[in-house]
Structures are given as structure tokens and as C-alpha cells.
Design a protein around this nucleic acid. Structure first.
Lengths: 205, 205
DNA sequence: ACCTGAACACCGTTCAAGT
DNA sequence: ACCTGAACACCGTTCAAGT
């Protein structure tokens, strides 16, 4: 029996396995052993399906307990959102472009709640909200790009070698070296997060 | 006569006018009055064409003069990069996923150069580089999402009304109100940029 | 060297028709 | 209510063939 839940679940599997580009209505239909058009009885659109998929990812983020101090709550939310996105890499490039579903709205609400408890002027809290979500988004995207490059190792190796071999971009060469003996993998996310949170705290009234 | 430059130029026009999805090899060919396969004599791939397109956008960013103080140089680079991306909104979602071309490498080099002049510990400079580029990327994406929502005004209005009408997400409602009498349009980008730059300066040795 | 049409292997969605 | 095949209007790219 076909259900919306089954469709979303199968679509998630396809997207996780092969990326969002390969999650086509037609592949989905063959996977579910039904005609393509049958799907359209449970889902208005491919876009609607994708919205459901994105909110499913959001539902994997466990919001911090209500009594968590604001700064820890923000850190936990940021880390958990990043982790969920990296668990479903295909979501990264569409996350901010899709209208939030109920689960994502709950996360947004929780982050705004944390900021409200920080005793910031109201506009600083609103600006801080975007500073934090933009950081999560920007960082996730950078990590995704990095991952893609590593996946196409052969092509990348040649291109990196070309840069390292030229003397046009010496600072870039140093920066690449930094990435190559990179042990600070986890800290990079926290570093900027703390820059932002420190800066916000300094605006506290 | 068909040339690579003409192809890139026409592709840019198509992408600017209708978005990257509508910039298809087939549309490009009809626009240029040639067979689709003729394009493949000047461009290896659609991906290669897109890389050229992205670097063309990067070429629109004028790097700051060499004697600009580091902090101003970083601000100028950030603002100019954001402006170029918003000028070609289709670039935002692919910018960080494409391998940099020569113009973009020059921008990267210039930003690393600015950070090198800030007297930061070497690893802080490298982390700061990503903090800054991630901010630009995250902010641009958020602005793009915002713009898309405004473009589909009818659909969005209903969805916003649904949120405003419910009492599930009170903080979200307040935040939406903040956006609605938003006069701080430009400052929002600078606000987080300054949080990051202030934080970096505090790490100066 | 430069150009090309036909063909292949795909898409999302509309429409009319079934049970 | 639920399902569907055929058709339409698209994709990028390979291949073999032209000049």
C-alpha cells in the first residue's frame, strides 16, 4: 500500500544514497513499484516532496532542554543542526531555499528563545539569529564542497598540484598546507561560533 | 562565428535573465543559432561552462588597493563579493561548489593577504579566512532565499499569514515583524562581519 | 578544424481514462 | 478514492558523419 510516509521515506533513502539529483519521481516510482503518476496522489509536486524531506531532516535535530543556559543552547542547536545536515549532505544546498516545515520552525523558535534569554537589545537578538544561522549554513556548504572535492580525488589532485606548482598565489599555497595538516577539524566550526557568541554577549544590555 | 567568449557571454545573459536552470545547452544553441553539439568544441562540458561563468562573476569584483589597511581590505572584499553575487543571483548556490578559476583565486589570495597583514597567529588567520568567506556565503544565500520568497509573493503571503495566525511560534512571529519594518538592510551584513573582524583582532599577537 | 543530426537515456507534469 | 499509460515538452551527451 502506498502512503505519504512510505514515499517520503523511500525518497529520503534515494537522496541519501545518490544525492537529490538522482531522487527523481520516476526512480521513486520504480523503487515503489507503482506508476509515476500514482505518487501525485500523495504529494502535490516534486517541490512539495522535497519540502517534506527537508523537514524530516530537521526532525532529527533534538532541541536542547528548556532550562539550558542560552549560550549552551545556541551551541547545541548549531552543532546538532550541522550534524543533521552533514548526515544528509544533499539537504545543504536547498535547506535555506525551502520554506520551513513544522520541525524546522520549532528549531528556529528554540534558537530565538535562547537569544531572548541572553538579555540582548531586541534588534541585536534578531541580527544575532541570522549571524548564527548564516554561519551554520556557510560552514555546512564549505564542508560539503570540501567533501565533493575529496570524492573526486583524481580530478582534484591535478588541480591542487597546478596551484601548488605555480607561484601566482603564494598565500593560497600556505592555506592549502594548513588544510593538509589539519587536526582542528571540529574546532573550526566552534571557532567562528564563539566569535559570534562572544560578540553578541558584548552587546548585552 | 562561434567563439568560447561568445558562448560564455550568451550563457551569462541566459543565466542572469532566467536562472541557471534555464541555461541549458539546447537553449544556448538556439540562442546562438548553431547545433547543440557545436558548443562542445569550445567547452568540454556543461560543468566546464559553468566554471567559466562563475569565474566571470568573480572577475567583476575589484580587489582593494595593495596599501589598504587589512581590516578595510577585508570589508571591501566582502562587500564587493557579496554585491557581485547578488548581481548574478544564480551564482550563489553554486559559488562554493565550483573549483575556483583564476579570478576567484586572485580574490582568495587578496583576502589571505589582508589577513596576513593583521598580525594574527597563522592558524587564526586561516580560521578567520573561512569565518569571513562562510559569512559572505551564508548571508548571500539567506538574501537569495528572501528574494525568492518575495518573488512568489502570493504563495508566501499565505504561508506567512498561517504562521502569524497560529500561536505555536511566538518568537518567530516577533522575528517576522522585525523583518517587516526592517530599515537596517545594509547593516545586517556589516553587523556580523564586524563581529568576526572584532573577534579576530582580539586574537592579534 | 569545425560543425551537425540522430539517437540514447533521462527529466517533471498534464491529461484522459480506467477501477 | 486511488491508480495509470501515453503524451508533451524538456534535459546532457555519445556517436558517426559530414565539410
Amino acid at each position: 500500500m502506498l502512503t505519504r510516509e512510505l514515499i517520503v521515506e523511500t525518497a529520503m533513502q534515494l537522496a541519501d544514497a545518490d544525492g537529490i539529483d538522482k531522487m527523481s519521481m520516476r526512480r521513486l516510482a520504480t523503487e515503489l513499484d507503482c506508476g509515476v503518476m500514482s505518487l501525485y496522489h500523495y504529494v502535490a509536486d516534486k517541490d512539495a516532496l522535497i519540502e517534506a524531506l527537508v523537514d524530516q531532516v530537521a526532525s532529527e535535530v533534538a532541541p536542547p532542554a528548556a532550562d539550558t543556559p542560552w549560550r549552551e543552547a545556541a551551541q547545541e542547536l548549531a552543532a546538532a543542526t550541522l550534524a543533521a545536515q552533514l548526515n544528509h549532505p544533499w539537504v545543504i544546498s536547498i535547506w535555506s531555499m525551502t520554506w520551513p516545515g513544522p520541525h524546522r520552525f520549532a528549531l528556529i523558535e528554540r534558537l530565538l528563545e535562547a537569544l531572548a534569554q541572553a538579555d540582548l537589545p531586541a534588534d541585536i537578538a534578531d541580527l544575532g539569529f541570522h549571524a548564527l544561522t548564516n554561519h551554520i549554513q556557510g560552514f555546512a556548504q564549505q564542508r560539503l564542497a570540501f567533501g565533493q572535492l575529496e570524492a573526486q580525488a583524481d580530478e582534484t589532485a591535478g588541480r591542487v598540484a597546478a596551484i601548488m606548482g605555480s607561484d601566482e598565489f603564494p598565500r593560497v599555497i600556505d592555506h592549502i598546507a594548513f588544510h593538509q595538516h589539519d587536526e582542528t577539524d571540529r574546532d573550526e566550526f566552534r571557532f567562528t561560533l564563539d566569535l559570534i557568541l562572544d560578540g553578541l554577549e558584548r552587546h548585552a544590555s
